[in-house]
Design a protein around this nucleic acid. Structure first.
Lengths: 203, 203, 203, 203
DNA sequence: CATGAATGAGACTTCATTCAT
DNA sequence: AATGAATGAAGTCTCATTCAT
């Protein structure tokens, strides 16, 4: 997937990702609107004005953070969907990879979860609205395939179920560093067990 | 002797809750920080300064919205937990009542879901941090009881499961008016079916 | 239901002077600009808007307070100057009556001392600028008479001395209630002793 | 004593004191509350918001003006009191140095005289209340020493006299630029003559 | 007379952003 | 690349004042 944005402001490649990581951390901690450019600069050990040698604007920072995050996510999902797996294995892979991507980019994921809906209304951020149903749709289709194949329970409301799964997965983005970073697979496994077999003991 | 006010024709039965509802709508739609007091006033058909006749500050508006919402939620949970139900029925009631409360107060719920984490760091909003684990804890304990009673699967990670359920339920607060308002019970039933029995068909 | 004819709630038909006294107290304590109309109303047990049944504006309140105070002062000075006293007795009377007037109208005096210079620049308050040199001028002329008569020391700088005396006298307006109210004559006597005879012991 | 500035080309040797001087002038002329930040900025040739690059708030401007002024005053008094002078010389030095300090910092002195009492009630300005009795106390003690030594008249009410002297001296801060700036010693000498020897001619 | 709601102007302050050095 | 000063637009909030009830 091609990068949509060339760095417009002059930048030395080393510093840029570093600054973005710092910015992501602050955005995640305080919220995008509540974060001041000065606070990011403080955290980076420079003055507010100096940030503009690296980025065009505060908006371009979230933009880059979120579009990078989402591009990676989409790539991951595409790989899963193109792998020719059965419905159950596809579902497991979608869930597992989601937890992994979130765990690897916790700040970006938290920003996405909290701010995307509001940011999506601003010009230049439509891609956020477009990205939102991606996981949901992949899940729904996988569920439909599974129901058709008899791998998943007949009569399943695939639309609602897709949403429930998506929300449960993304919820982990808000658990904070202690919850989701270290071992994303230790979230995926129990979640999948619950999702597939339910709470009630099998007879 | 001060007589009770008895407004005759143009009775204004408390403008306050009306204004709070408007404010909640705008906060939910745009985010707390991105919402200007003027926008709320516009929506209410008055000038920005006039709002301060009814409220101390913008902060006090979210405060009242959220604390009212959470007080109702806690009351509901307490009623469920005190009803003497078995674990499975308690779980069903917690989920069902959560969807109902969210559906009845969609704007407040959306604000809570999106802003609570950031607002909780401000002085005077500690109660948000305290309220956060309430549903999770109620769920976890119910799950523990259920596991002990053999109603729920043995070996369940009750801590993680509590969180997954909470996130799936609260996720609906972000579905927008078309998703969760109309028939909360039509969310609760399929969700509980999924949660209890899982995706996989029973043998 | 109260009686029709008499304004009952308060047996006082004239609320006005009472309200002015309250306003003067608050102006003196907080400063004119820092005083809100609402604060005055609070102190008077009514709502801010209700004050406008008695006064045209906040400005008209200070106006009435200060012009009343100054009219009384001028009357007093005129009486002293018209009494046909000698220079020394005139000086004593001016000082004594000043302390008395200040002591009797402490709040108004404090407002005058603190706010007059700034208020005088506003339209409608020119009389404040005109009133300012009244005591100084009376003092200076009395001093000049006294020097001519040999009652006061030859070579006295009457302009400076007039100012020094005025400032010492008006300074008491800022001493607070414990300093100047109770016994103005117990200020006048020692001050006059000091002024006439000085600190140094007579040989 | 202000050092001559030696600007090279466009040397900006600290804009801060310059801005403080401007602010002091405006505060003195209009009163603290009546002064708008915009007015100060206008006078300084910048926009209101730009002032906040140099100062935290309007309050912090008066704060710095007054605390600097009072620190200098206290230093001066301490030097006088530690000089080992006799009572009469101490008194003369206190009065002379007061007139000088006031004359050198007329705007700050005027602000102090007019606003200190009201400002002192705000948090962070307690030092104003503490600084107020400093001159009075120094004067009273010097007077007491003088009475004990027989340099000053026996039976003197030192408390009242201290206040009278303080008020006469500080009064000059309100005389305006034409009165007290140019030659503070030409105020001190006649005032001391009056204070020591009184109005009445010596026999 | 008093109330309670609302107005409208303006105040202080914040902040993203620019630009000469 | 970075600094420090400044801009300009907004935003929250205050307050004197008005007016129908």
């Amino acid at each position: 997937m091609p990068t949509k944005k060339k760095p417009t402001a002059t930048s030395r490649p080393e510093r840029r990702p570093e600054l973005l990581a710092i910015a992501a951390e602050v955005f995640a901690a305080q919220g995008y609107d509540a974060t001041t450019v000065r606070r990011i600069a403080d955290e980076a050990g420079m003055l507010a004005g100096s940030l503009y040698h690296h980025f065009d604007s505060k908006e371009s920072m979230v933009d880059e953070i979120l579009s990078t995050f989402l591009a990676g996510l989409r790539t991951t999902y595409d790989a899963v969907l193109d792998a020719g797996l059965g419905p159950r294995e596809t579902l497991e892979a979608l869930v597992t990879e989601s937890f992994r991507h979130i765990g690897r980019n916790l700040a970006a994921a938290a920003i996405y979860r909290t701010e995307a809906a509001h940011l999506a209304t601003r010009p230049g951020f439509q891609y956020l609205a477009e990205a939102r149903p991606v996981l949901e749709r992949a899940l729904r289709r996988t569920l439909e395939r599974g129901v058709a194949d008899g791998v998943f329970r007949a009569g399943l409301d695939t639309r609602l179920t897709g949403r429930f799964v998506r929300d449960a997965v993304w919820g982990a983005a808000a658990w904070g560093p202690t919850g989701a970073t270290d071992a994303p697979d230790e979230l995926a496994r129990p979640y999948l067990a619950l999702l597939l077999d339910g709470l009630a003991p099998r007879p």
